[in-house]
Computed example of a mutant assay.
Amino acid sequence: RGWRGSDPALAAAAEAWEKAGATVVWVGVDGVVAGALRCEDSMRASAPRATALLRAMGVHVVMLTGDNRGSARRVAKHCGIAEADTHYGLTPERKMRFVTSETLALETKWRADDGWAARARRRFFGRATLAMVGDGINDAPALGAADIGAAMGVAGAAAAMETADVALLTNDLARLAESVFLGRECVRKIRQNIAFSVAAKTLVLMLSLAGVTGLAVAVVADVGTALVVILRHTPR
């Protein structure tokens, strides 16, 4: 901070850079200001499309970054992320605390309703899931604290890759939305299979108790149900 006062013109330029979304690195020689460097991250081209796809799927997108306010707001505006959901200047520890706090809030909200319908939802569907996406070593603690940690990028930090639950070896952020879609489809198919199997076997059991069918039909129904489930989801 003392360096800013030593060269008012350079300090004014640095302030303008920060407001424009850049990060300023001060350079000094023997304790004397020698200049300043303007550093600006390039945004991934797929970021706006990825956030749009996630929002269309009902996912609430929040940005956590260690960059300054100007840089964070520039990226958030480009990606359509609300200012209230943009958190900047975060250290790795603060990112982790934010994720932990949000996870606890989801858990508390999930358990707040004690009605029979809420208990049924908790039994069969669970609460909302919090996922953290990152590719740097600074993201590793937050990735570990989230329900699901997803490491992105071919050149992602080793610490992030090891901590994350999912590693997407691509720089295309739109693949993240594809992963969410595939995960939801997988869970939906599992529930359909369980419902179909239980319904079919319950029907056969009732018919057997009524004396309409025998053991052979029950065996065929059991094996047939398993085959239907397998063949129904075999890739074509």
Rank of each mutant, 00 (worst) to 15 (best):
D41G: 03
I230W: 08
A72W: 06
A157E: 06
V204G: 01
V198R: 11
A158W: 01
V204I: 15
A22Q: 09
G126T: 11
L227R: 14
R191N: 13
A50T: 08
G2D: 14
T103M: 06
K189I: 15
R69T: 14
L169S: 13
V29P: 01
L143K: 10
K19R: 10
A45P: 06
A167E: 00
T91S: 14
G183I: 07
G136E: 00
V204P: 00
S197L: 09
K95D: 13
A146M: 10
V212F: 12
T213G: 02
A131V: 13
F181K: 14
D67M: 02
V33A: 11
L182A: 14
G21P: 03
L37A: 13
V133R: 00
A47Y: 00
T86A: 12
R123C: 10
D85T: 10
A210I: 13
R111I: 02
A151N: 05
G58Y: 13
H233N: 11
F181R: 15
A167C: 13
G156M: 02
G126W: 06
V212D: 05
A226D: 15
T103H: 02
K19A: 15
A112Y: 04
A9V: 15
G28D: 15
I194G: 12
V229G: 07
D135R: 15
T129R: 07
C79I: 11
N138C: 01
R38C: 09
A14M: 04
K77H: 04
R4V: 01
A34L: 07
V180W: 09
A177S: 09
D139N: 10
N68I: 01
E178H: 11
G2N: 07
P92G: 11
Y88K: 00
C39I: 14
V62H: 12
V59P: 02
M132K: 02
L130A: 06
M57T: 06
A22K: 07
N138V: 00
V166P: 06
A12G: 08
